[in-house]
Design a protein around this nucleic acid. Structure first.
Lengths: 202, 202
DNA sequence: CACGGACTAGAACGAACGCTCTATCCGATA
DNA sequence: TATCGGATAGAGCGTTCGTTCTAGTCCGTG
């Protein structure tokens, strides 16, 4: 029997390598159930891999796997953000568009798939500081992306830095609020308010 | 031996009833470790109560206890918010003050104690919908408080409603960002930006 | 054809989980 | 003083946890 593409419980992941399938399964499960709520066996089952494979690729165990899952989520949102920033004429409109994209994805998952980075890292400050660090790096990266775009659009150094902070904070909080309320309004409103706030610094 | 005030592992809680001690211990532990990361036995130990007492007061088990813990956290932030709103002359300054208060508490706990409502309810959408509902009610209550204050200060109906949404979303997201970065800057910046945004609707 | 490293496979371990159960204690009432 | 329900106490249930371990399969290279 073929070993790498067998089982293939993941629709589009059948062609991927075992390691990548494990990371993706871990990322999606922890996005929905958190770090503590997700078991290694569940991940291996969902990824169509065995326990042996998981510990082969991630000898550091659950923490190492979760760290990689966070980096995967980091990259996912980085792509969304970059696409929004590249697709709009000005940063304010780009952020609003990004909020709409997130709202759309959230609704499409029936309000289940929130931010994978937040969901995976929350509540692990004491037990798994590695996760906190990886999550902090993700936030910093997103913030840097927005900051660079604002500076490139002519905003002052300090304004760009502070606006980028609030953009990421607000998007994150609004996604959480939207998920809890099962309503995309918080995200759409946040997008409009962020655009207005950015424009007020022109 | 006296039963209700024995053990008293909680500094100021010795005089409280058993039920209240259990709720407070659950709230604080879940604030730090999340719902799945916190065990009933750990809660009972920390509260100076026994397993029997926990199931006596919360026959619904962990979910019922966690729901009550969320309501406790809801009330905690409601008090902070109301104090801020009552203590400042205008809503914009009140929100900024509230952000400063949250930042102070977060730093005082060495970036461990985030929002108890968020930390407890995240990642439970599928396994414990009761928690999601309790958390959503908390967010709605906070939002209502801000909205009422804005309307009382003369803001238009729709502006007040939308601003309240963003105020709560941004505070929540900024607290998360501050906790991850171990830096109060995200909260302080968010407070100033929210004040600016509110003022722009005058 | 034989070897060896990468990878797959899953049984088994001790610990911890949420929860049930019976037994006991205490203070207010009759 | 006898009674009885609220509250306390913790042993023990079955299950699942993260992890370890040994065995086996595959395939490129000598």
């Amino acid at each position: 029997m073929k070993t790498t593409t067998e089982a293939g419980r993941e629709a589009g992941d059948a062609a991927l390598g075992t390691r990548e399938r494990i990371v993706r399964a871990a990322s999606r499960l922890m996005q929905r159930q958190g770090y503590e709520g997700t078991g290694i066996k569940q991940i291996s089952r969902e990824a169509g891999a065995t326990l042996g494979s998981v510990y082969h690729f991630f000898p550091g165990g659950k923490q190492e796997l979760a760290t990689e899952a966070i980096r995967h989520g980091d990259q996912e949102f980085t792509d969304i953000l970059r696409e929004a920033l590249d697709g709009a004429d000005d940063p304010a409109e780009a952020i609003a568009a990004c909020a709409r994209t997130v709202a759309e994805a959230l609704r499409a998952s029936d309000w289940i798939d929130g931010c994978p980075v937040t969901a995976t890292s929350i509540g692990t400050a004491e037990s798994a500081p590695d996760l906190q660090r990886a999550a902090a790096e993700a936030f910093a990266r997103w913030r840097g992306l927005v900051e660079d775009e604002l500076r490139a659009s002519g905003f002052a150094e300090e304004s760009a830095r502070e606006l980028a902070h609030t953009v990421i904070s607000t998007l994150e909080g609004a996604e959480l609020a939207a998920q809890l309320a099962r309503d995309e309004a918080p995200l759409l409103i946040a997008g409009r308010h962020l655009a207005r706030l950015i424009d007020s610094y022109r």
